[in-house]
Design a protein around this nucleic acid. Structure first.
Lengths: 355, 355
DNA sequence: CCGGCGTCTGAAAACGTTTTAACTTCCCCT
DNA sequence: AGGGGAAGTTAAAACGTTTTCAGACGCCGG
């Protein structure tokens, strides 16, 4: 029993009433002095402030939100927070929210729509005024109706919905879209490979139906076409994202054929797996195979070799999401913002052997 | 005015009153049927539930928390969410919280005590019932009084405080400590180097006063002593953490001397920087210099070469923090849990040249 | 037929804040 | 002198729930 101070009994927080009493004013005056919502002469104000400090008063956010009809809270929903890319987006949201004194909640869904729905529901209960759904997704009917429902419900509550890197099911829906130009990014990085002389290039990490990946595949194909490479020379391996997927798919591919000189990975994690698979097969990067990634995650430059990739300013994506959502008074349904990307050249690309 | 959000107009949410009306019952009955807090005959219950569904009713969490006197909310506070290690801890907390239907808020401080204090204050206002402060820290007077204040204030509000990887300023303080055995981990990994034949080993990434790093340095020194290496042969470079710090410090060190054959890095990010610096200096790992890290972050195996390091189950740390805090009804002041670590051998260590 | 008990229900009292509307003062202007 | 504000303050009414307390009703055993 080391705790001598009342360690038992019901804990009661100090209320504004006690502050008011101690300062010798009414509750109303205390509230005004504390919230600064209404001018109060300096003398009383300091008296109230002092009483609050003496009592270590902490306002009850619930009571405040209850009467105020809302609260400054944003929510980011991602697949998982340990993904470097998502972590950066979340950090951007958090930072921008913190700058305005907003609270930021993050939810992880593990990719399960069920958990996404539960989380959005929870945010409705909590009165979040901004919900940011992050990450590409396969756009099926279930997705469309889910998002339509979110949008309608949040809009009815006066909250904003922003979709980061995923499409709005309908242009009329009250949701904002902020995303990168995946098509352009993939086109640029594939072009980089083509310029180095590569002709047999495989795309590793397709995920049919997933809008983000489909766009990258489209960019890859467009680049091929631009450089006059017959479409048949291209190849897309639909292994999805993640290091494990990249590792497995690349291992398989190498067992099947070596008729390619370069691979563009769906993202940097896939590239990490591919790099490992290539090394395990006794091949060298970039001498034997060139590899490019996507996203430029923080550790991409520490890969072996340092990865040439497409930089997608993820933190900026998060910041932009809240900035735009909070600025834009129109909330213009179907408002669509696309952020640019650029290629960052490191050492995972060389000219192919024969060139 | 003063409204930063374009005012789409304060929309009114559906209240329980409307649900009750539609179901033809009183508010009290509706509440009981919805919250299941009190038995209600099936017929009325279905009626109420149906009305709620028809109206897309969402309970107001604030009102509920106001009367209920609390809410299921946990907060994790980290330096930055993009640090792989912290991200994993946060994920663990989030997962464990979600499992119990709790909400999880994450705050990033950027390492500034000021922001830490603001965030804890915010959590007090919000009525969080669990606050988890993560990450080593220099234990000075400011820290001690800060944490003592958090502990007292949260305890007074009936909330729990847990310190992850940072010390409790006083054993009597109402806070829980959960951490890894840094000393043992560093001892093991340094021992690994010593067993390979290394004798001139430098520790890169000290941060005097920081308890986590001090413990690792202590482990490093203990290992040296165990193997009969004179203390004078050891060297600690106090460059702090982070990739940039490791890169800079290692570059400096290599300019000054090459009288060492191995380096143990303060964590994996420092190791990443060191790896790069070593490569830039034209040396090879592990042939010329062996390197080990700390934490085994997800991409450590993709470094060049794959990094031998100490695995600290970060997600488990986060899970354990909430599990212990929520389980232990005593909250036993000074309760202290330490989680084990183990070394994971990859390819960044070889026997030194002469051996 | 009555007293008592169980089961359902509803009116009203919380919870802690902000805001509204009204009430003083006090001062300046006519 | 008297009227009109402005400035400072307060009591009381919200806000949307849960919970308490008590009433209504039906049923059983005496």
């Amino acid at each position: 029993m080391g705790n001598t101070m009342g360690d038992t009994g019901p804990r009661r927080r100090v209320t504004i009433r006690e502050v008011a009493e101690r300062a010798g004013v009414s509750v109303a005056t205390a509230s005004r002095a504390l919230s600064g919502n209404h001018p109060v002469p300096t003398s009383t104000r300091t008296r109230v402030l002092r009483a609050a400090r003496d009592l270590d008063y902490v306002a009850n956010a619930h009571a405040r939100a209850l009467v105020g009809g809302g609260r400054k809270m944003a929510a980011v929903v991602v697949r998982q927070v340990t993904s470097p890319f998502y972590a950066q987006v979340a950090e951007g949201v958090e930072a921008e929210a913190a700058d305005r004194g907003w609270l930021c909640v993050v939810g992880a869904t593990g990719g399960e729509p069920q958990r996404e729905m539960e989380f959005v529901q929870l945010m409705r209960e909590e009165g979040a005024r901004l919900v940011i759904l992050v990450g590409g997704v396969v756009e099926d009917d279930a997705y469309r109706s889910r998002v339509a429902h979110y949008a309608q419900a949040l809009d009815a509550a006066g909250a904003r919905l922003v979709l980061c890197g995923r499409p709005a099911p309908d242009p009329d829906i009250p949701a904002l879209v902020v995303e990168f130009d995946n098509e352009a990014g993939a086109r640029a990085v594939t072009g980089h490979l083509l310029s180095a002389g590569h002709r047999r290039i495989v795309f590793l990490g397709g995920l049919p139906g997933n809008t983000a990946l489909d766009a990258r595949v489209a960019g890859y194909r467009a680049a091929l076409a631009e450089h006059g490479v017959p479409a048949a020379a291209g190849r897309v391996v639909d292994c999805g994202l993640g290091r494990a997927a990249g590792l497995r798919a690349m291992t398989e591919l190498l067992k099947e054929t070596r008729e390619f000189t370069a691979v563009v990975a769906g993202d940097d994690m896939v590239a990490a797996g591919a790099l490992r698979a290539i090394a395990d097969a006794g091949l060298r990067v970039p001498e034997d195979v060139s590899v490019v990634g996507y996203n430029d995650i923080p550790l991409a430059e520490d890969f072996n070799p340092p990865l040439t990739t497409v930089r997608t300013p993820a933190e900026e994506l998060g910041r932009a999401a809240v900035r735009i959502a909070l600025r834009d008074p129109e909330h213009a349904s179907g408002s669509h913002h696309v952020l640019g990307t650029h290629i960052v050249v490191r050492r995972s690309v060389a000219s192919p052997r024969g060139a």
